[in-house]
Amino acid sequence: MMTTPLLSVRNLTVGFTHYTGTLGLRPRVVPAVEGLELDIDPGEILAVIGASGSGKSLLAHAIVGILPNTATVSGGIDYDGTPLDSARLRRLRGREISFIPQSVNYPDPLMPVGRQVRLTLPRSRAAQLQQALFARYHLDEKVARQYPHELSGGMLRRVLFATGVTETMRLLIADEPTPGLHPAALQEVLSHLRDLADDGAGVLLITHDLIAAAAIADRVAVMRSGRVVTVESSSSFTGRGETLRHEYARRLWRALPRHDFWEGVAP
C-alpha cells in the first residue's frame, strides 16, 4: 500500500501585486514562489535551503496560512491526503501543525515569556508544563518572568521552540530555528528535531546551515529564485559534493568556510 504523505504541496505559486505605471495605477503580479512541489512523510525531516529572498519563508507562511493579504496564492496544499483549506487549517494549527517563526521579533514584547508559553498550553496544567518545557530547553526559571528584550537571540530561539512544540503535534514547520545558537545548544535543537521526527512527526526545516541539514534531514530541497531547483538526498552533502545532482547545490556546499569559502567566489 502506498503511504499518504503527511503534507503535500502541489504547484504552489505565491505572487505579490505591485503597482506600476503613471500614478502607480497599473497592477502587476510578481511571482515570488512558482510551481513548488514538495512532499513530507511522517517521520521525515525535509530541509529547505537556498539564497535569502528565494521564497523559503513564503513557503512556510503559505503552509501555515499567514501570508499577507496582498499575496495571491494558487496551487494546493494537502494534509493527510485531504486539502488543507482555511477552516481546517484553523482547527489544526497549534494542535497538529506547529510553526516556529524565523524572526525572534514574533514574541509579544510586552508580556513575560513564561506567560506567552503558558498561553499555548492546556490551562489546568499550564504552570507545570511550562516549567517542564523551560527545563527541557535549559532556560532558567527566572527567564520565565523576563520580557523578550531582556533575552539573548539564542534564548529567544529556545522560547520559540517552547511555544511551538506541543504534545499533539504531527507536522512542524521550523523557519530557521538555529541562528544565534552556540554549538552545544545547536546540537541539542537538532537532536530534538530528529527525536520529534523519529516519534512520527513530519518536519519542514528551513535553514542556511548546510552542515545541520546534512546531519539530521532525510532529504534537502534547494531553492533559488522562487523555485525548487533540486531535491537531494542529505547523504550527498559529503566530501566535495561530487554526488550532488545539481550544480547550485554543489556551489552552496563548497562555499562553506570549511571547504572552499571565498576561493570559490569571484571577487
Binding site: A51, S52, P179, H208, R251, L252, W253, A255, P267
Partner: peptide, 21 residues
C-alpha cells in the same frame, strides 16, 4: 556581529571576501 548568520553560504563567502579585502 553574526553578520552573515541569516544568509546562504555563497552570500556569506562573497560578503566576507569583500570585507577582508
Amino acid at each position: 556581529d553574526e553578520m552573515t548568520a541569516m544568509f546562504d553560504t555563497l552570500t556569506q563567502a562573497e560578503l566576507f571576501a569583500v570585507v577582508r579585502d
